[in-house]
């Protein structure tokens, strides 16, 4: 009985080792491709999103207070900076993740 158990444990360990070695090989390039594609779409839309919100906010404030385009200009600049800030944060979180792994 104990012999059986020992041989089973041994085989289990061998099998686990085999699986552990094989795992990083499969799936990793796919994972990287995927995250690259998702990163590209994320970075693009973050920049665009910031600008859109800035322009909309500026336009609304202009309409509200009957300015011609003063706040549109200011908020478009601020919104563009917000978009770039978002992309910068995205890259920072990515770098942190790379360092951990």
């Amino acid at each position: 009985m104990t012999e059986d158990r020992n041989s089973f444990d041994e085989r289990l360990r061998a099998a686990q080792k085999r699986v552990a070695v094989e795992q990083p090989k499969t799936g990793k390039p796919d994972e990287e491709d995927r995250s690259l594609l998702s990163l590209a779409s994320r970075a693009g839309s973050e920049m665009l999103g910031g600008l859109v919100v800035g322009v909309l906010a500026g336009w609304a404030v202009d309409r509200w207070f009957h300015f011609r385009a003063l706040f549109l200009v200011i908020f478009a600049l601020l919104g563009g900076s917000a978009g770039i800030l978002n992309v910068w944060r995205l890259m920072q979180s990515l770098e942190r993740k790379n360092k951990e792994s």
Partner: peptide, 9 residues
């Protein structure tokens, strides 16, 4: 603005 841009993006 960066917070408000979340749903838009």
């Amino acid at each position: 603005l960066s917070f408000l841009s979340r749903p838009v993006s």
